[in-house]
Amino acid sequence: MTTHYLVLSALLFAIGAVGVLVRRNAIVVFMCVELMLNACNLAFVTFARQHGNLQGQIIAFFVMIVAAAEVVVGLAIIVTIFRTRRSASVDDVNLLKY
């Protein structure tokens, strides 16, 4: 039972990770990050259920809150960049280097 959930969680995480690495659109990258976070949440909740305690569930809440905050800040940055550079590709914003 647990194994199925974990395999699903690993699959979701892998899809998210590949998405982050291969996609250029900042919004899609962002969604892939969310996917990874939620894959982690699934694993946490699974373990919480297996061990019969609440710690995993609590951490999942923390992750959600952090994810929400991150989305707010991240989207704001993406929108600002889009306004100035007319592009949402992550490869176009490479000024922050060296």
Binding site: V20, L21, V22, R24, V29, V90, D91, V93, N94, L95, L96, K97, Y98
Partner: peptide, 9 residues
Amino acid sequence: RRVQTGFVR
């Protein structure tokens, strides 16, 4: 520092 290319990916 050349390693820091600026490409997020």
